[in-house]
């Protein structure tokens, strides 16, 4: 299992606003696949998946704003349990 963090995508700000998730929990995902759309001070961008697996949990929902480095989702093998906050 792997934690997906919000990359540092902005020019002057660490913040990124999640516009929408392009996959839902339980979906199979692969490396390079766009997972979500975000808006930064610079542009609207896609965040790509870093590995193959299943999207186990979305931690930060659409319409929320998070700082770079925040865990936004977990991917892994089907059935793996996700750490609880």
């Amino acid at each position: 299992m792997e934690a997906i963090i919000m990359p540092a995508l902005g020019q002057t700000s660490e913040e990124a606003h999640i516009l929408e998730w392009l996959v839902k929990e339980g979906d199979e995902v692969e490396m390079g696949q766009p997972l979500l759309n975000v808006e930064t001070d610079k542009a609207e961008l896609e965040v790509e998946c870093v590995a193959d697996g299943v999207l186990l949990k979305i931690v930060c929902e659409a319409e929320t704003t998070v700082n770079a480095g925040t865990v936004i989702a977990y991917i892994g093998e089907p059935g793996e349990s996700v750490p609880t906050e």
Binding site: I4, I5, P7, A8, L9, M31, G32, E48, V50
Partner: peptide
């Protein structure tokens, strides 16, 4: 390259 790029973004 792709792996390095995505892992770079992951910090």
């Amino acid at each position: 390259e792709q792996t390095a790029y995505l892992r770079y973004l992951q910090g």
